[in-house]
Simulated assay, not measured.
Amino acid sequence: MLQSILTETMFSKVAIWSFKIIVIIILFTWVLKRIILTKNAINNSSIKVLERISVGSNVSIVVLDVKEMRLVIGVTSTNISILYKLPPVIEKGKQGLSIKSEDIENIKKDLSHVFGIKQ
């Protein structure tokens, strides 16, 4: 009789631990799927941040690809403004930005006026 009670207690403990392990495995699988789906949704987004440059404590310039457009935006703590709309770049691999040197000079000139920097 004592042996049958001990056997039943051991069986119930093993059953409970097995159930807990199965629940943990199912929860872990669910969390992993959610992480992977979220990561894929972010990677498939039509907005990609190409580069971010900090200009001041709360000011930065960001280069974005938005669908078929490339934007240069200024971001402050209170405002976001489009500084330039660049033509889309057809990538033949993973290359950087293809901007003409005269465009760079115009961007520098306009940004110096926006941020009050003297050249």
Rank of each mutant, 00 (worst) to 15 (best):
I80Q: 07
K33W: 07
K94F: 05
K48R: 11
V75H: 06
L6T: 02
N44V: 01
I36N: 09
V72C: 10
H113V: 05
T29Y: 08
I117M: 07
Y84T: 05
M10H: 11
K85P: 02
V63K: 08
K48T: 13
V114Y: 12
Q119E: 10
I24K: 07
S57T: 12
A15H: 06
D103Q: 14
E105A: 13
L37K: 10
V72D: 03
D103T: 12
V66K: 05
F115S: 00
L2F: 07
P87Y: 05
V63D: 04
V63Q: 03
T29H: 06
V114K: 09
K33C: 13
V114R: 09
N58V: 04
R52N: 09
K118H: 07
S54W: 10
K67G: 01
N79K: 14
R52F: 01
E51I: 01
N106P: 00
F115A: 01
S81R: 04
A41I: 03
S60P: 00
V66P: 03
V59H: 07
I21C: 11
Q95W: 02
A15N: 11
E68N: 15
S101T: 10
I61R: 06
F19I: 07
Q95K: 12
F115Q: 02
V66D: 04
L71S: 04
N58D: 14
N44M: 03
M10L: 13
K85R: 13
N106Q: 11
E91W: 07
N79R: 12
T29I: 09
T7K: 13
S46L: 06
S45D: 12
R70H: 03
I22E: 14
E102Q: 11
V114P: 01
I24H: 04
S18R: 08
L32H: 08
T9D: 15
S12T: 08
V23E: 14
R70W: 01
E8V: 00
G96H: 01
R70Q: 07
S77R: 05
S18V: 01
F19T: 15
S54F: 08
I73F: 00
V75K: 12
S57K: 14
V72L: 15
T76P: 04
P87L: 08
T38P: 02
S112R: 15
N44D: 13
I47S: 02
K20Y: 04
E91M: 09
S112A: 09
